[in-house]
Computed example of a mutant assay.
Amino acid sequence: MIAFIGGWAKIRRGARDHVLGLYQRPAAAFARQRSHRLIEKPWLDEFIAAMGGNGRLLDIGCGNGQPIAEYFIRWHLPVTGVDDAAAMLDRARSRFPQQRLIHLDMCAMALDETFEGLIAWDSFFHLPREDQKLMFPIFHRHSHTGSALMFTSGPGNGIAMGEFEGEPLYHASLAPEEYCALLTEQGFAVIDRVVEDPLCSGHTIWLCKRVE
């Protein structure tokens, strides 16, 4: 486990900086190890259906762009990708030069536009819990009535440490009740949710739609 010392602000900053650095340094290794088998396909198809089968898509924490953004591009959905790891974003730009890919901290996102679909797959759960709460008004700001939102989280309230390239990798999650309350506050309804989906490598997945 990472030892974060100091007040809560330092803990939050330390966790975020560590994750960002980890994704920056071994971007090529991550690209090699990331499965392209697309076990996520049933969920991605359900997400596209929730969007109405078309429209613009915001990929929050797009990374290298493979395989998630790549799948949407094959569906001819215009993708705007946001990521704070420049090395990973550079790889995405080299593969998908026609897409809009922005080097930006997701917590500072203010694009002054809305999208038919927003996805944060294996990305915003690297944020400390207090920062995750701040993302829900951002989801609202970048959506409109009818927009689909899909994200992954942990199965329950807490912090979990994974490992990548021999280094600890931080994950955090709110309680399901907190996510539900935050979604409701921002006008989203949960239309599908599976905890630790055995058909999707144990991911906990939320599929939502903005209803107001």
Results as ranks from 00 to 15, higher is better:
127 L>A: 14
163 E>M: 13
104 L>M: 15
131 D>Y: 10
159 I>L: 03
109 M>H: 08
129 R>H: 06
127 L>S: 09
129 R>C: 09
104 L>C: 13
155 P>I: 08
119 I>C: 11
123 S>E: 09
133 K>I: 12
123 S>N: 04
114 T>Q: 06
155 P>D: 13
146 G>Q: 11
128 P>C: 14
117 G>H: 03
116 E>L: 05
141 R>W: 04
128 P>N: 05
112 D>A: 11
161 M>R: 13
141 R>Y: 04
142 H>F: 02
136 F>M: 11
120 A>T: 01
129 R>K: 15
120 A>I: 01
112 D>M: 03
146 G>R: 08
164 F>T: 06
129 R>M: 08
168 P>H: 06
104 L>T: 05
126 H>N: 06
130 E>L: 09
164 F>N: 11
133 K>P: 09
167 E>Q: 15
140 H>P: 14
104 L>V: 01
145 T>W: 13
136 F>R: 14
132 Q>F: 01
120 A>Q: 06
149 L>A: 00
123 S>L: 04
131 D>S: 12
147 S>G: 05
108 A>T: 11
105 D>F: 04
97 P>H: 03
148 A>W: 04
164 F>I: 07
158 G>R: 04
157 N>V: 15
170 Y>P: 03
161 M>Q: 11
130 E>W: 12
101 L>T: 07
123 S>T: 06
142 H>P: 04
147 S>F: 01
167 E>S: 08
163 E>R: 13
133 K>H: 09
119 I>Y: 12
145 T>N: 14
157 N>W: 13
156 G>A: 15
125 F>Y: 15
132 Q>E: 10
122 D>K: 10
115 F>I: 01
166 G>K: 01
97 P>E: 05
166 G>C: 03
125 F>I: 12
161 M>W: 14
142 H>K: 10
126 H>T: 10
124 F>G: 05
128 P>H: 03
108 A>C: 13
145 T>S: 09
168 P>F: 02
128 P>S: 02
149 L>P: 00
154 G>T: 00
145 T>I: 13
118 L>A: 04
126 H>M: 05
154 G>L: 08
150 M>E: 03
119 I>P: 15
151 F>Q: 00
160 A>I: 14
